[in-house]
Write a protein that binds this DNA or RNA. Structure first.
Length: 571
DNA sequence: GCCGTTTTCGGCCCGACTGTTTTCAGTCG
């Protein structure tokens, strides 16, 4: 049973218990679920080795439930909870403004068991008959239902990033000189973003609120208060703003950056040191004396912690590492020396090879690789052997005209179903290197797929495994393969795992990056650009690398050109 | 249900905003 499946069971239990008004247990189950999701290794292995209790948040009771779940495929306790309350009530909890209390009141008072029931009840204005429910509440819940129904999930990092940049520059223009920052999951650069959080330091919060809610593109003002407001933009993205005083800005930035789990750990640490932390500052617990608040870095310092970069604040061991001054020095946003996976108009992209080179130059890269699709990927206008030969010749001529940035003649070669590559050896020999990838037959079983990828890796021109898991965020899950075996093969063949920076891919993801690095693998952060402007997507790949605790030394294309040439056996 | 510089029982983060219950509960982050 997959970790995610086990986690889902415990999230469901937490929801049911919350509906029943059971205190504290929901939090315990959610914590266990979150830790299982982020686990390094399979939960089944932990069970086999009798190491479940080593996972934080898992004690005797939950360990026993995990055992039952994995061994029998079901859980009596969950079945019991399911029998007690209708399943549709869980859907009600997805609606903004509807929490466990409201859901239970709706169920008990009106017999509402599903979102459809709720819609019908609102249509008949039945909610207003309940004590404590007025017309506004009814309207708000209806709005919430519309949002749930319309939103196709969370926004991709790239979309949220663009939107946030626009909102921020609007505010900066209106209020020049004010300190402001992105906070929340966007500052942590998570692969998907629920809503955008913005923090502003100002002694005149009212003015900021007024500007904020009157921004062009606002579709709905969800809330407007003295220091806190929320709007929904026409593109569906919710933006929350919070204004604090200058003296609290650092504490607020820390607080609103999260993650929630990270903050819980930080608060606990503060308590253990006789301090207390809130969005207003770090305080001495007994005297309520404020120790600091204006500078985020100072808060970590006063708690005897190394500064923890936002990308690491996920309660995945960063607190311990920071306490021991063992945080890795993360790869920086300007550490890349080039891009090793880009497409041109020779296959399915726009832009010439010269355009790619010019964009690489603009980014101060030392090199860029042209890696168009291989022949069998007809849908992406994969290059025939003849066209590929032409392209290589073309690139060599270009190099003679202009040496830097250096243009590598590569190819994104399909891994065929039996693990052979999509060009014969003599054709591959003409290339500087090959990026290899799976673009077909995603549904193979794990064993077959593992063998397929491992076989492909033995080709001497193969240097990078592109988008290694094949997942597309919100659309397609990873194909199945044995990560450990592939990582071993990668290491012994000198092949790097790619972080494909395309916003809907970000593959490897943060957790897998960390896993890969633990196996001793090298990571290549590539754009997979299908337009020269998309070379800038590597920002999100770098963010993902940082979230996976990667250092510069883990990154293949942080190497300068001559070292990379040696690595590729070209020098 | 978990956990331990509060320590094996008793606590579990904390504050803003909203609607409406005229004093606060519910939700959210």
């Amino acid at each position: 049973m997959e970790n995610s499946e086990v986690a889902r069971v415990f999230y469901e239990i937490a929801d049911y218990l919350e509906l029943q008004g059971v205190p504290f247990k929901p939090k315990a189950y959610r914590r266990a679920a979150a830790n299982i999701e982020g686990l390094d290794g399979s939960i089944e292995d932990f069970l086999k080795k009798g190491e479940l209790n080593e996972i934080p948040g898992i004690g005797e009771a939950i360990a026993e439930k995990i055992r039952e779940l994995i061994e029998t495929g079901k859980l009596e306790y969950l079945d019991k909870l399911r029998a007690e309350l209708p399943k549709g009530l869980l859907d009600l909890l997805e609606i903004p403004e509807v929490g466990p209390k409201t859901a239970m009141i709706l169920y008990k008072e009106l017999g509402i068991k599903s979102v459809d029931d709720l819609k019908a009840a609102i249509f008949d204005h039945k909610l207003q008959g309940i004590k404590g429910f007025g017309p506004k509440t009814e309207e708000k819940i209806l709005q919430g239902i519309r949002i749930v129904e319309s939103r196709a999930g969370r926004s991709l990092l790239n979309d949220a990033y663009q939107t946030a940049a626009q909102v921020l520059s609007y505010l900066q223009e209106k209020h020049p000189g004010q300190m402001m920052s992105i906070a929340g999951s966007l500052r942590r650069m998570k692969e998907t973003i629920g809503d955008i959080d913005i923090l502003v330091a100002s002694e005149e919060p009212g003015k900021i609120m007024d500007s904020f809610v009157s921004i062009k593109g606002a579709d709905e003002i969800i809330a407007k208060g003295d220091t806190k407001s929320s709007i929904r933009l026409k593109n569906g993205i919710q933006v929350d703003i919070r204004v604090v005083s200058r003296e609290s800005y650092g504490a607020a930035l820390q607080y609103f950056t999260g993650s929630k789990e990270h903050n819980v750990e930080l608060r606990k640490l503060a308590i253990s040191k006789g301090m207390k932390i809130s969005e207003y500052g770090l305080f001495e617990r007994k005297t309520e004396k404020k120790l600091t608040g204006d500078d985020e870095k100072e808060i970590y310092r006063m708690l005897d912690l190394q500064f923890i970069p936002p990308e690491l604040r996920e309660a995945r061991g960063e607190m311990d590492a920071a306490a021991n001054y063992r945080l890795p020095e993360l790869v920086a946003y300007d550490d890349l020396k080039g891009d090793l996976h880009c497409h041109s108009e020779w296959s399915d992209a726009s832009g010439t090879i010269e355009d790619l080179r010019d964009k690489a130059e603009e980014l101060n890269y030392e090199y860029v690789a042209v890696t168009d699709h291989s022949q069998s990927l007809k849908i992406a206008a994969g290059l025939s052997e003849e066209r590929l030969a032409d392209q290589v010749k073309n690139i060599r001529t270009l190099r003679e005209q202009q040496e830097r940035p250096w243009v590598f003649a590569g190819s994104e070669v399909d891994i065929l179903k039996d693990g052979r590559l999509d060009y014969p050896k003599d054709v591959l020999r003409e290339l500087d290197f090959a990026v290899i990838s799976v673009h077909s037959r995603f549904k193979m079983d794990e064993k077959e797929m593992t063998k397929r990828i491992v076989t492909a890796m033995s080709n001497e021109k193969a240097k990078i495994l592109a988008h290694p898991t094949g997942r597309i965020i919100g659309q397609r899950t990873s194909y199945e393969f044995d990560f450990e075996k592939v990582a071993e093969a990668a290491k012994s063949n000198g092949i790097a795992f790619e972080i494909n920076s395309f916003p809907e891919r970000l593959d490897l993801n943060d957790i897998n990056v960390r896993k890969a690095i633990d196996y001793g693998s090298t990571i290549a952060i590539n754009s997979d650009a299908h337009d020269p402007s998309q070379l800038e997507y590597t920002r999100f790949g770098i963010a993902t690398a940082r979230r996976g605790w990667a250092r510069r030394s883990d990154i293949l294309n942080a190497l300068p050109l001559d070292e990379l040439m040696k690595r590729f056996g070209l020098k």
